[in-house]
Amino acid sequence: MKEKSSPSLNEVYYVCKDHTVSGEKFKLIFDPQTEMLVTHPRPQADELPAYYESPKYISHTDSRKTLTDKLYQKVKKYMLVKKLRWIEKKVPKKGRILDIGAGTGDFLFEARSRGWRINGIEPSEAARKKASEKNVKLSLDATNFKSEKFDVITLWHVLEHVPDLRSQIIEIEHLLKKNGLLVIAVPNFQSYDARYYKEYWAAFDVPRHLWHFSQNSFRHLLAGTSLKQTDLKPLIFDSFYVSLLSEKYKTGNTNFLRALYTGLKSNYRARFSSDYSSIAYFFRKLG
Results as ranks from 00 to 15, higher is better:
Lys70Gly: 00
Ser273Tyr: 04
Leu67Arg: 14
Tyr51Gly: 09
His60Ser: 12
Phe107Cys: 03
Ala102Lys: 07
Ser226Asn: 06
Pro234Met: 01
Lys265Cys: 01
Gly105Met: 10
Leu9Asn: 15
Pro7Glu: 07
Trp116Phe: 05
Thr61Phe: 02
Lys76Thr: 12
Leu138Arg: 00
Ala45Ser: 15
Tyr196Gly: 02
Pro234Asn: 08
Val136Gln: 06
His40Lys: 01
Lys17Gly: 04
His174Glu: 13
Lys248Arg: 15
Asn267Glu: 05
Glu88Ala: 06
Glu133Val: 11
Val12Ala: 06
Val81Asp: 14
Phe26Ile: 00
Ser278Cys: 05
Met79Asn: 11
Phe218Gly: 02
Ala185Asp: 13
Glu173Gly: 09
Tyr268Arg: 06
Ile118Lys: 07
Ser266Asp: 12
Phe30Asn: 10
Gln215Gly: 05
Leu67Phe: 14
Val158Arg: 04
Ile170Leu: 13
Val242Ile: 14
Asn10Thr: 03
Tyr249Phe: 15
Tyr241Asp: 09
Asn188Lys: 09
Ser274Leu: 06
Glu199Asp: 12
His220Phe: 02
Leu181Trp: 07
Arg208His: 14
Asp18Phe: 05
Lys137Met: 08
Ala194His: 12
Leu182Asp: 10
Leu227Thr: 12
Ser167Asn: 09
Thr251Ser: 15
Ile118Thr: 15
Pro49Asp: 01
Leu232Asn: 12
Met1Cys: 05
Glu3Leu: 11
Ile172Asp: 08
Arg269Gly: 13
Val12Met: 00
Ser266Thr: 09
Glu160Pro: 01
Ile153Tyr: 03
Val12Phe: 01
His161Ile: 07
Ser266Met: 09
Gly120Val: 07
Val186Gln: 01
Pro234Phe: 07
Gly263Tyr: 01
Pro234Tyr: 02
Asp205Glu: 02
Cys16Ile: 04
Phe272Ile: 08
Leu286Gly: 04
Ala259Arg: 03
Ser22Asp: 02
Arg85Tyr: 11
Ser191Trp: 08
Phe150Thr: 09
His212Cys: 03
Asp31Trp: 07
Tyr13Gly: 04
Phe145Lys: 07
Ala45Arg: 11
Tyr281Leu: 01
Leu9Trp: 12
